[in-house]
């Protein structure tokens, strides 16, 4: 005789508001949303390049828009999310050890320290090279 299951499994569905359940979930959602701002800035750069390529008048018009108050606020918001991306990215990538010390992964603090050091040096170099002599 074939065995029969008398189970009636009750299947629950994840709430659409699952990410409000604890602060770590919320930070995760915000971290994932940094992608929107990262992509937005890439498109702004493309726009800027297009304007620059189209000649002085077009670039002047672009700068009018670029340095208008609403655009500066938008760029400020993008910068905030970009910084959040950097910080969360450095924290997240420590999970894959790039090297080992005596067979053990390096301490998280060391990896983050290396990232931050590279970050600072690169930022200073880029900042200097964007405008020649600051």
């Amino acid at each position: 005789m074939a065995t029969q299951t008398v189970r009636k499994p009750y299947v629950r569905h994840r709430s659409a508001w699952w990410w409000t359940k604890n602060p770590r979930y919320l930070l995760f959602q915000v971290r994932e949303l940094t992608s929107v701002f990262v992509v937005a800035y890439a498109f702004l750069l493309l726009w800027q390049l297009w304007a620059l390529r189209s000649g002085p008048e077009s670039y002047d018009a672009f700068l009018q828009m670029w340095y208008s108050r609403p655009m500066v606020i938008v760029n400020g918001i993008i910068l905030a999310f970009a910084l959040l991306h950097s910080v969360t990215w450095f924290a997240a990538t420590t999970k894959v050890p790039l090297f080992r010390i005596h067979g053990r992964p390096p301490p998280v603090a060391l990896t983050i320290g290396i990232y931050v050091a590279i970050w600072i040096v690169l930022s200073l170099v880029v900042a200097k090279l964007l405008y020649g002599v600051p």
Partner: peptide, 26 residues
């Protein structure tokens, strides 16, 4: 896996499955 990371927070044995998945991806 989108690396929410909560699995490693709740793990009572500190197995760090979130880290394990990222290592497997790599």
């Amino acid at each position: 896996c989108t690396f929410v990371g909560e699995c490693s927070v709740v793990c009572p044995k500190h197995v760090d499955p979130a880290g394990a998945i990222q290592q497997l991806k790599a």
